[in-house]
Design a protein around this nucleic acid. Structure first.
Lengths: 343, 343
DNA sequence: CTGTTAGCGCTTTCAC
DNA sequence: GTGAAAGCGCTAACAG
């Protein structure tokens, strides 16, 4: 409203001192009345509360944090992109748990880029958050170092780690891909292809690729050349469709995509050129998005507990902030969801 | 990591004084070197920069804000729910614009509830954000009052307003629904039903209902009884399917849903019971989600500029923070997207 | 039960 | 070009 005033935050919000004056007490009494009402005489308390209402006082967290004793009540969440419904689910779970306890989520999107993650860690640390929720378990040395010395509780998510920074909530993406690959083989597919987003920047894609290759090795089936989809951003239907020909050229009879979105794109493209799915070509996805149930045939996929990850991350953060007991690590199970896009 | 230490934010992060000591200068010189390098001798600057790197210094925004001169660089965004892809799009647009300028988005989910919005406004104000982005244009008196006296720039989005708090970016939901309803009539449908989420808590649903009714009045067509879907949360396919029978019972030959998700749910349900879509029943949605292109027949819908809304909101916020010129209000056009779910 | 004093980490004067 | 002093709004510690 008044942006060009001299002092930036020239806020018209009343200070605690204003409340004190209105209530006819000291600022300290107001402070106590607000944070520990039992320590203040009932009459005084009532006057303070009236004064708060009258002045429209909103506590200044900033000052409280600086003074050292009170928390910022900010929890930072870093995800690759909010566009991906699956990460949005996790963030929702997180804030569902934290919100009722007065914590707020400050969201950062890394765009799957390590340097951007580092920049965000530094920038967010500047706000002295009470905790961090991060996606994935691999960080740059600089990122690790910053988080370490900050002393802030950290939850890493969406994967497991033998060397966590602090706390972890996740599942094995390798095992999930392994399970799906074995399932496809069990359904009679023999030339199973794997398609992921850019595995160079996406640790989960990389782990899934490992699981895929491991399963095929175990079964003595061929590992087909792995086409990688370029842009490290949100998966699109178009990309899934575009990759289809390349994969079919290698004689694939099934394709396992690391995203339902790719898989659905390919499914529609396959139907458009008259391919029999699941007969001539089996298609499987990952994540179990709503879209997987909507297409026909329904998409075989892996359900991952996105929301649950956020909930557990929130619980761990609360525990760590209140000193409550809670395991440092939680493994959440994925589930195979067979539908009609595979035999 | 060290949650049970005595002082909550007992952070191990170095202070500016530590950097100063390492560089052999005063804290003041470090401050200047960081914010206005030209005012410091080149040699000193180099020593300070080395000291910053060595100590791993991360500026404390909290202290800067309290001291009065520097901004929090926090922009608060309040949306009904992050689960709805359409609002996620807006948030992405917002942070794409703000991020490069050093601003960070603090996200709040109101769950479509006015009292929750008020609570979040107060809670976020406590962090002294530099600006607010809000969804919708109707607020509680308390919310308006808080925002007013805070003096913080506010952008209201996703609808237009004759009495905006400050800035607005949106489109007319009434006109959008009006256009779709007329389109359906033009395609030959005569008994056009309207289905929305809970309009009591969702201002956009309410406005769309007005547009629907206005169009039918103009055309002399009957306004069918409007079944409202209960839960004020994310639309689900199931809810869309569940409402189908009730609407058909009134002899509808077309249904206009205020969400693609409902529409797709109903579409699948209609197909399941052998109804001819678009012949016997036309179905239209709202938002143009990816899912609308995926179903078969493709879903006729209204494309709304979700991402663009965020981008423009970001631009307005930046302008208002830097004193640049920028209109207070932007109208962004919606687009009708005809597909095969209507004749 | 309430008030006084000091200080959180930084920035803005004003001196040097 | 650099330093010293004061204060932002709040809370902890101690006094009364």
């Amino acid at each position: 409203m008044n942006a060009s005033s001299d002092k930036p935050n020239a806020s018209a919000l009343p200070r605690m001192a204003d409340v004190a004056k209105a209530a006819g007490v000291t600022q300290m009494t107001v402070s106590r009345a607000l944070r520990d009402p039992a320590k203040v005489a009932p009459g005084t308390l009532a006057r303070v509360r009236a004064a708060v209402a009258e002045t429209g006082y909103v506590p200044n967290v900033v000052a409280g944090v600086l003074s050292g004793r009170s928390r910022s009540r900010i929890v930072t969440a870093l995800i690759p992109t909010i566009q991906h419904a699956i990460f949005a689910d996790t963030v929702t779970g997180l804030s569902e748990v934290l919100g009722p306890h007065g914590y707020h989520v400050m969201l950062g999107e890394t765009g799957y880029r390590r340097d951007e993650e580092d920049a965000l860690i530094a920038a967010f640390l500047a706000h002295r958050p009470d905790a961090f929720m991060l996606t994935g378990v691999t960080r740059s040395p600089r990122g690790r170092d910053l988080l370490r010395r900050s002393g802030v509780p950290v939850v890493e998510t969406w994967e497991l780690s033998r060397t966590p920074l602090d706390m972890v909530v996740g599942y094995s993406n390798e095992d999930a891909a392994h399970a799906m690959t074995r399932y496809l083989a069990q359904r009679g597919y023999r030339r199973i292809a794997f398609v992921s987003g850019p595995s160079r920047t996406n640790e989960r894609a990389r782990r899934r690729e490992l699981g895929y290759a491991r399963a095929l090795r175990e079964l003595g089936l061929p590992v087909l050349p792995i086409p990688t989809i370029g842009a490290p951003s949100v998966p699109t239907l178009e990309e899934g469709a575009a990759v289809l020909d390349a994969v079919l050229a290698h004689g694939a009879d099934a394709i396992f995509f690391t995203s339902d979105v790719y898989a659905v794109g390919a499914l529609l493209a396959a139907q458009a050129r008259g391919l029999d799915v699941p007969g001539a070509l089996g298609i499987a996805g990952f994540h179990d998005l709503p879209i997987a149930r909507v297409v026909s045939p329904g998409l075989t996929t892996v359900h991952v507990p996105a929301h649950e990850i956020g909930v557990l991350a929130g619980r761990k953060i609360l525990a760590s902030l209140t000193g409550a007991a809670e395991p440092k690590k939680s493994v959440i199970p994925f589930t195979l969801v067979p539908r009609q896009s595979t035999r």
